[in-house]
Design a protein around this nucleic acid. Structure first.
Lengths: 123, 123
DNA sequence: CGGGTTGTCAACCGATGGGTTGAGAATGGA
DNA sequence: TCCATTCTCAACCCATCGGTTGACAACCCG
C-alpha cells in the first residue's frame, strides 16, 4: 500500500477514527464498545479498525468472542518526529529571515533586537 | 467540507504533499519550482497545492505571472496539540496500569515507589 | 500589438474510501 | 449439541482523490 507515515496520517484524517483513538486512551475496548457511540454498522467500525491496525496505531487480540482493541501510542512519535523536524526548520528559517530584514533596515551591523518593524514587505 | 484537523491530516497523508511541505521549509517557491522534482503535470501539482491551501498549511500570493507558495507552519500545532493530548493520556494510563500490576505482585500496600508518587489514584 | 511564460479551470478516468447489507466464522454457555 | 454473542468477510454503491489532457487567463516583454 503506502508507507507507514502516510497510513498513520490517513488513518487520523477521519474524525470517527480520531475519536476511537481518543477513547482508547481510556483503555482497551471491544469492537462493540467502540461502535456504540456511532450511528453506523458494526461492519463499518470493523473497517475503521482495520485501517487503524494497518497504520500500526492499534493491535487486536482474542478473548472469547471478543476482540479487544489496544492502542499503540508509540506510533504517535512517527508523526511528531516528522512534524517537529520541519516545524523547526521553518522556525530557523524565519529567524534567519528576521536577521536579514533587520540588516536591511539597520545596515550598521548592530541588529536592533526586539521588534522586527517591517514584516510582510518582501519583494 | 470537513474540519480543519481532518484536512491537515489528509493533506499530509500524501507523500508528494509532505515532500512539498518539507521543501517549503527552505523558503517560498513557485508552482514550477515545486513541480520540478516530480514526474507529474503542473496541473497535478496545482491540485496538491489547493489541498495544502485548504488545510491552511500554505498560502499563495501573486508576483507577476508567478504564484509564490508560502508555508504556514503554525498549523502544525493543531496536530501536535491533538497528538500530545492523547499520547499523554495513554502514557498516564500505562503508568496507572503499572501501579496496579505492582500492587498485584506486591500486595503489602506499600507501592515500590520508583517514581510519580501520585497520579494514578483518581476515580 | 503579439508572443512567451506561468499557472488555473474544466472535464474526464480509474482507484480508493466509507458506507451498506447479507452471510458466516469463532467462541462460550445452557 | 444447539444457540446466542461477537465480530469478520464479501459484494456492492457512490463520492472523493490523484492523475491526465485541453483550453485559457494573467502577466511581462519585444
Amino acid at each position: 500500500m503506502a508507507d507507514q507515515l502516510s497510513r498513520v496520517f490517513a488513518a487520523l484524517a477521519d474524525p470517527t477514527r480520531r475519536d476511537m483513538v481518543a477513547r482508547l486512551t481510556d483503555g482497551d475496548a471491544t469492537v462493540g464498545d467502540l461502535a456504540a457511540p456511532y450511528d453506523v454498522s458494526l461492519q463499518a467500525v470493523s473497517k475503521h479498525l482495520k485501517v487503524l491496525e494497518g497504520a500500526g496505531l492499534v493491535t487486536r487480540s482474542r478473548e472469547a468472542q471478543r476482540r479487544p482493541v489496544h492502542l499503540e501510542a508509540e506510533v504517535f512519535e512517527l508523526m511528531t518526529n516528522w512534524i517537529e523536524r520541519y516545524r523547526q526548520r521553518a522556525e530557523e528559517r524565519y529567524q534567519r529571515l528576521d536577521d536579514v530584514l533587520a540588516q536591511m533596515n539597520d545596515p550598521t551591523g548592530e541588529t536592533t533586537e526586539t521588534d522586527t518593524p517591517m514584516e510582510g514587505t518582501a519583494s
